[in-house]
Design a protein around this nucleic acid. Sequence first.
DNA 1: AAACTTTGCTAATTCGTTTTAGCATTTAGG
DNA 2: CCTAAATGCTAAAACGAATTAGCAAAGTTT
Lengths: 346, 346
Amino acid sequence: MTAKRTKRASIKDLAREVGVSPTLVSFVLNGKQKQYRVSDQVADRIREVAKRMDYKPNGFAKSLREGTSKTIGVIVSDIANPFFANIVKKIETVAEEKGYMALFASSDENSDKLSNLLGRMLCKEVEGVIVVPCEGSEDTIRSLVDRRIPTVLLDRHIPDIRTNYVSLDNRKAGYDATEELIRKGHRKISMICYDLKLSNMKGRIEGYRDAMKDYGLSDEIKIQYVNIGALEKSGAKAIDKIIAEGCKAVVCATNSITVMCLRYIQKLKLNVPEDITVMGFDGGSEFDFYNAPISFMTQPTETIAKKSVDILISQLQENEGFITQIEIEGAITNHTPPQLLTRRLN
Amino acid sequence: MTAKRTKRASIKDLAREVGVSPTLVSFVLNGKQKQYRVSDQVADRIREVAKRMDYKPNGFAKSLREGTSKTIGVIVSDIANPFFANIVKKIETVAEEKGYMALFASSDENSDKLSNLLGRMLCKEVEGVIVVPCEGSEDTIRSLVDRRIPTVLLDRHIPDIRTNYVSLDNRKAGYDATEELIRKGHRKISMICYDLKLSNMKGRIEGYRDAMKDYGLSDEIKIQYVNIGALEKSGAKAIDKIIAEGCKAVVCATNSITVMCLRYIQKLKLNVPEDITVMGFDGGSEFDFYNAPISFMTQPTETIAKKSVDILISQLQENEGFITQIEIEGAITNHTPPQLLTRRLN
DNA sequence: AAACTTTGCTAATTCGTTTTAGCATTTAGG
DNA sequence: CCTAAATGCTAAAACGAATTAGCAAAGTTT
């Protein structure tokens, strides 16, 4: 009673069953009955037998023959991060609409793993890839581009490498976030960011710098770099320093920094926004129950996801060599704590 | 200057270049040099040319020939849900360790989409699938099992269908969650759950019922069904009713219900746990800043993910017909609000 | 009735790989 | 020295589908 899987029926099996050549079966099953003038009688019999034997064409044979897989690879830096999880979801939807399947993987911000995953995906014959590059992945990405593999970088890009990318306009996001605090009357504004060379981080920092300069606050520019591997510890130190310097407002360069920051502020029993105003980044469900008003610079994740697929697939189809680089604007969202909903906010 | 992608070198191209038969190239590149006694001289030349021409074997040809794809399909109900995002991440890791690639997709709890996705995955020649079945997907799953496609259901199962599954021990989870409240001295305990026929929901409800009965609280059993499509509205109504009935404790059957519940309680300006004690489910990052102590029944997501892959792959490799059904125990986790960390908790 | 066209079908090739069977040539054994 | 075995290689088939070229038989023109 062991459930031996029976081999799937092939075109040859159908042909033998119907009593015709495999050619005819192929013609009929690909809707070319008229084009190759197959008689209705035979065509019907073929279709009937195909249904009865539950015929499903072999994807490998098809792809091998046609030289196309209709599959794209997507490697994000952490699929368990809601920001990327949402992007991945949208990518899948858009790809499917366009008749492509998407193969997903997560590099965990590890360049070796990224390189490894890419290799495996290319073995699976993906036609192109959407990649979130991580620190140290420059060579991997470069070889991808050199090998003419259609590539779209997501969320971050590598300035030296000429290839497609879609990301937030990080400079503008950093600028706008800072400007918002300035508009609210702040002058002593710090930024907390990771000590990473990734383009998105650099852009946000640059935006902060530019905004401060534009408003004549060059002397107030203070950037605290925290360590991603020891966020709690380095974050606490950074915030202690910021406060010691008399800062009353801070721009957090990522969502995780925002969470860390607010946690520590809570621990210090300081009030937001009275003691310190926080401008966060992204803003996930972590803040569903956060009980003070803060603002976030949020990214249009769906647009970012859609654009990346659009670019990749048009590249695949047109086989042209031009490059598309898109930086999409973020927007400031205000978080309204549940308790305040009934009160009047200023 | 258009970047025409050049066709990849095949084994034949290498053979021509080296001046030997394709057979030898294949032998060498598959590490069978000794087995088929290829001379070192020729082998070295082949390897050198392969490297120079950047030879990568064609995955389709290989899979077609070998009749195996080393790929599994994974369809969750919502990849943007952190619970599933984490599972997906772990599945990918484990699958890769075992030499398999995982193809992911998200059904959005839509049985048509699920069926569609499955069809496409099977065309891509996945060897087996891990599926989170959604409402109305019984027929789709049944046909999968009937067609002898190695299948593991995740998170939920379908009682009528004999197949592998891995899920939380939902009955025990519901039981333990309820029992915990009873131990704390509560007697008037309600449950809020979705009006769904999914096995996980039914299990949790059954557990709640059993616990109440076991502790002689049959008369206090009160189950409020809320509508997943109108969670806010039906949830508010449910909670109003619970409170009117004098309930001082509630078991929320899912994370989203827990969030809704706590939000509404906040809106009513009631205090947790003084006015009402909440036992949540799963407990995501939504509660990072929640400022009252609550408990959660949490799932061992990593174990669930790992087991599902283990089962699927052993099935694939042993080709045996037995069925494995695993229900893993959950655990109660206490959420300690950040503000209370410095105070003494009772 | 010869010269065509149309109809309905098949054989054979191709995609790139793996593997079996087998063919020379050299080396070893008695 | 002559058989037997080991060495180093190749041809060919197979996996399953798509497609081109082409072959009969029937039908249509002149």
